[in-house]
């Protein structure tokens, strides 16, 4: 069984919300990543429980590995409740400050988040103290160009965000949207992780894990497959985007999907750039794909998510 220091509590969530990591140190308590907007009430209840468990602490600081909707959706609510000092990666701060709904993949992807206050920024190389432990911020471009990971050399723990999961990593959106350096950046991020002394990864989604080499091997293999066939990345992204919508809405009428893929700009753009199918064919194709990979099923005229295998 995985043993983390007593000062670190991982609140393992699902896929719509990122994991939330509560670090309780002698001086203060920090939360890394706050889940999705529609789960904010649950996130607050979980954080409150974790704080009470540590002797009734307050939440002093909030840190984001990156500012995708599923990692920052609870920020505003947490700020209202606790007045926590909030830091985001330096590269994301301008997007948050002007609340760029396209660049943040919010309305562009039919996702939502609540605007929040940025108190400070973090950059690669910054040292921070969380949970009575020293951490270093490490650049993790790939899935998100400006993402950070946090490594404790002393505890040999990596808070990886969406840069490395037990099986895979977050969709390489920047590559899809024309940032040609993305594959190389992703490879360098994996190389950075491989060069660290890590015994335990706390990923943005899924359980914390210790088989780091095996996870890296799977990640390199997936990256290679995308490099060999960029349309594969587009297919993967289309599946993930619709699955996210299904997890948020819990069901989507099959009859609405043609319009959905035509009107949701991220899906429209992926289709136009990579597949050039009619919206109807694209919708049928995604449904078939989600059924094939057992991410969804048809039920009473709706498409519903299948979260467990």
């Amino acid at each position: 069984m995985l043993k983390l220091p007593a000062s670190i509590r991982v609140l393992e969530r699902g896929w719509l919300s990122s994991n939330n990591v509560v670090l309780t140190g002698p001086e203060d308590t920090v939360l890394v990543d706050s889940g999705y907007l529609t789960h904010a009430t649950q996130t607050l209840a979980l954080v409150e429980h974790a704080l009470a468990d540590r002797g009734g602490r307050t939440l002093d600081r909030l840190v984001n590995t990156h500012c995708h909707s599923d990692h920052m959706g609870g920020n505003a609510a947490l700020q209202r409740r606790y007045g926590c000092h909030t830091s985001v990666p330096a590269g994301e701060a301008p997007l948050i400050e002007r609340w760029d709904e396209d660049a943040l993949l919010l309305s562009y992807a039919d996702q939502r988040a609540e605007r929040f206050r940025v108190d400070a920024t973090l950059a690669a190389g910054d040292r921070l103290r969380m949970g009575g432990i020293d951490w270093v911020a490490i650049a993790a471009p790939g899935h998100d160009t400006h993402a950070l990971m946090f490594h404790s050399p002393e505890e040999r723990i990596l808070i990886s965000g969406d840069a490395l999961w037990e099986d895979g990593f977050g969709v390489l959106f920047p590559q899809l949207f024309g940032r040609e350096a993305t594959f190389a950046e992703t490879r360098r991020t994996l190389d950075s992780i491989a060069a660290l002394d890590v015994r335990c990864v706390i990923p943005g989604h899924g359980a914390p894990f210790e088989e780091v080499d095996a996870a890296l091997e799977r990640a390199y293999s997936r990256l290679h497959a995308f490099e060999e066939d960029p349309a594969r990345l587009a297919r993967h992204a289309a599946r993930v985007m619709l699955t996210f919508a299904l997890l948020e809405k819990q069901r989507l009428p099959l009859a609405s999907l043609t319009d959905y893929v035509a009107q949701t700009r991220v899906l429209r753009d992926i289709n136009q750039r990579f597949f050039a199918m009619t919206p109807q064919h694209f919708a049928e194709w995604i449904v078939h794909e989600l059924e094939r990979v057992r991410a969804a099923k048809r039920e009473d005229g709706d498409l519903v998510p299948l979260v467990t295998a």
Binding site: G14, T41, G170, T243, E248, V307, A309
Partner: peptide, 23 residues
């Protein structure tokens, strides 16, 4: 993000289905 496949190791998978609303 992607829906959880069966756990890769022997671990017991979380029963979360992304509803996340306390009654």
């Amino acid at each position: 993000m992607k829906p959880a496949a069966a756990a890769l190791d022997d671990g017991v998978p979380s029963p979360c289905i992304d509803v996340c609303k306390m009654n």
